[in-house]
């Protein structure tokens, strides 16, 4: 009995020690600002040397004529702009053939990097190998210009010189990419309704003339003769969770590109369909353009709707706030 107790005690202590220690916990990178499909997440800094300011000097005789060891020759993608929560954005590139893998991360944010094994020899540049990966971005990534940092890694884990390629991470609040290019003017006012579960909530805004703008009739002024509505017209940008189809946003925005018509605006949250949820917590935020040319939150109101109060569009729902424009 004594020996059994001793053995049990030893095993329990080992188990508790392992369970409680930090150890090398498995981390699949699920909480990272960028996730790369099929790649391995490695906590820590990228190996290799920090990027050269202004990018690597182009060698004589063309871009890829005489590449140094462990060099990322190029990184290609379709669009420099990354829409919030973008999924499956494609990247590809070339790396010198002494590399077995490339490491990838967003510079300055996140806790580690992703390792992507290189592919086969490039058909046109025999001293380089191809690599390709598909990346997804967290919808709450800090907006603004952010370098995608890539480094070539050899079989011993050594890295070459890192290469930065600028991306524009767009803000989930529609600001006309002002965060990336301050020359872009922000909308004058944005009403943003966000919520926490897959519940079809609709933002309703009753304008001073009594018009109900909502995701189902999302324009304040409709175009004539099937033309395009002017970009300056106020509108609601999307019907999030429409038909209860999850879209990852759980957000609707009423955008006023120009200063709204004067008067009192009533704002409602309509529990259109519960989508099987018992309740939903929401928050309304009003953003207004500041003197610095950026959007700033000027009003916030939170609340809760119950699944049993779903309207199916029969009413404007719960009154949240009113906003007076003078």
């Amino acid at each position: 009995m004594r020996r059994a107790l001793f053995a049990l005690g030893v095993l329990a202590m080992v188990g508790v020690a392992v369970a409680c220690s930090d150890g090398q916990a498995a981390n699949t990178g699920a909480g990272e600002p960028m996730q790369v499909s099929g790649a391995q997440f490695v906590p820590g800094e990228l190996p290799g040397e920090l990027p050269v300011d202004g990018g690597p000097a182009e060698p004589e005789g063309g871009a890829h004529a005489t590449l140094g060891p462990l060099t990322v020759a190029e990184v290609d993608f379709n669009n420099v702009n990354v829409i919030p929560g973008a999924s499956g954005k494609s990247f590809s590139g070339l790396v010198t053939s002494d590399a077995v893998a490339v490491g990838v991360r967003l510079a300055g944010i996140g806790t580690g990097y992703w390792v992507v094994p290189v592919g086969g020899r490039d058909g046109q540049l025999p001293t380089t190998d191809d690599f390709a990966f598909s990346a997804s971005f967290d919808i709450n990534d800090p907006p603004g210009n952010r370098p995608l940092r890539v480094v070539a890694i050899d079989a011993h884990g050594n890295g070459g010189t890192q290469l930065d390629t600028e991306l524009c991470l767009e803000w989930r609040i529609p600001d006309n990419r002002h965060e990336c290019d301050p020359a872009n003017p922000v909308p004058a006012v944005v009403f943003t309704l966000q919520w926490d579960t897959n519940f079809d909530v609709d933002l309703h805004v009753i304008t001073p003339d009594g018009t109900d703008v909502n995701p189902k009739t999302n324009l304040l002024a409709y175009p004539v003769d099937a033309g395009q509505p002017p970009a300056s017209d106020p509108r609601i940008d999307r019907d999030s969770l429409g038909q209860c189809v999850p879209d990852g946003w759980r957000q609707e925005d009423m955008i006023f590109p120009d200063y709204p018509a004067l008067g009192l605006y009533d704002i409602y949250a309509d529990p259109f369909a519960s989508c099987g949820q018992a309740a939903v917590r929401f928050v309304l935020t009003i953003y207004e353009a500041g003197s610095d040319g950026a959007l700033h939150a000027t009003f916030t109101q939170a609340g809760e709707l119950l699944g049993s109060s779903a309207t199916g569009g029969g009413s404007t729902g719960l009154f949240i706030a009113e906003k007076q424009f003078n």
């Binding site: 090398q24 498995a26 790649a39 391995q40 077995v100 893998a101 390792v115 992507v116 094994p117």
Partner: peptide, 13 residues
């Protein structure tokens, strides 16, 4: 999992 050089390895579990 993969090592930092892309070689398959064990994921601690």
């Amino acid at each position: 999992a993969r090592t930092a050089t892309g070689v398959p390895t064990s994921l601690p579990d």
